[in-house]
Nucleic acid binder design. Structure first.
Length: 109
DNA sequence: TATGTGACTTACC
DNA sequence: CGGTAAGCCACAT
């Protein structure tokens, strides 16, 4: 693992790991914090490779608080259940009170 | 080596 | 106010 291999991709993991319990954030927020506001897709793609890591991918959703990535989890409702387990209300793939549980890395970090 | 794809977001008709 | 296009960049084929 050479330092040159560290990319935007890896930085996403570092930020995602710092998401507090019971909070969520958006792909764009992470991307923006990393200085690549237009690379939100990469954040999502990074989550795709978060399997086996300590990255709480279920705490990362799209800008609308919609669980767009739930289909990448094993079950169909696994992502939602994980969030509800942390006290985050989710209904129909949509996080309730999203604005309330939203965690902005730009403010926290 | 080249082409296609994607867990998004913003900007423009 | 809505749909479409473009941009981002790493990874898979």
């Amino acid at each position: 693992m050479k330092p040159e291999t560290l990319t935007f991709f890896d930085k996403v993991y570092e930020v995602a790991k710092q998401i507090p319990f019971g909070r969520v954030t958006s792909y764009g927020a992470i991307a923006k914090y990393l200085g690549a506001a237009r690379s939100a897709r990469m954040v999502g793609y990074a989550m795709n490779g978060s399997s086996g890591k300590d990255v709480p991918a279920h705490r990362v959703v799209n800008r609308n608080g919609l669980l767009t990535g739930k289909q990448h989890f094993d079950g169909t409702n696994l992502m939602q259940q994980l969030l509800e387990s942390e006290g985050v209300a989710v209904k129909n793939n949509q996080i309730q009170n999203f604005k309330t549980v939203f965690w902005d890395p730009s403010e926290a970090l």
